[in-house]
Design a binder for these strands. Structure first.
Length: 107
DNA sequence: AAGTTGACGACGA
DNA sequence: CTCGTCGCCAACT
């Protein structure tokens, strides 16, 4: 019941991320009911070649680091998109303290 | 069915 | 702070 929907849940979560905010793989995994499945989350996003529809560039690692192997155009492209949305990207790192998306309804 | 891979996370050096 | 290893889960071969 969740196995097949796993990726679907991840995609839905990524789409829920508001502009100018970022979310971590582990955070998404935990929200969809699969804590610790951060790897599986990243794997699912890798399959998503529809970056236009799913803002996978808003998804970063737990330490605020961008994807080391971003499919579309590499970390540089992802960084570019984040900056374009108002996210301050330092090298390959973003300020999770300021840009990490938190849903007030979830808390 | 079993083994390996992969856009990760945490811990140790 | 950076690099290396083990452990996590789901998907692929």
């Amino acid at each position: 019941m969740s196995r097949t929907n796993f990726k679907e849940k991840v995609f839905a979560m990524v789409r829920r991320i508001p502009c100018g905010k970022v979310e971590t793989y582990g955070g998404i995994a935990e929200r969809i009911g699969h804590p610790g499945a951060a790897r599986a989350v990243g794997n699912a996003l890798h399959e998503n070649t529809d970056g236009v529809r799913t803002p996978c560039h808003r998804v970063v690692s737990g330490q605020g680091r961008l994807a080391p192997m971003y499919v579309f155009g590499g970390t540089a492209e992802q960084k570019r998109r984040l900056i374009a949305e108002g996210v301050e990207v330092n090298g390959i790192r973003v300020d999770l303290k300021k840009y990490l998306w938190k849903d007030p309804s979830d808390e």
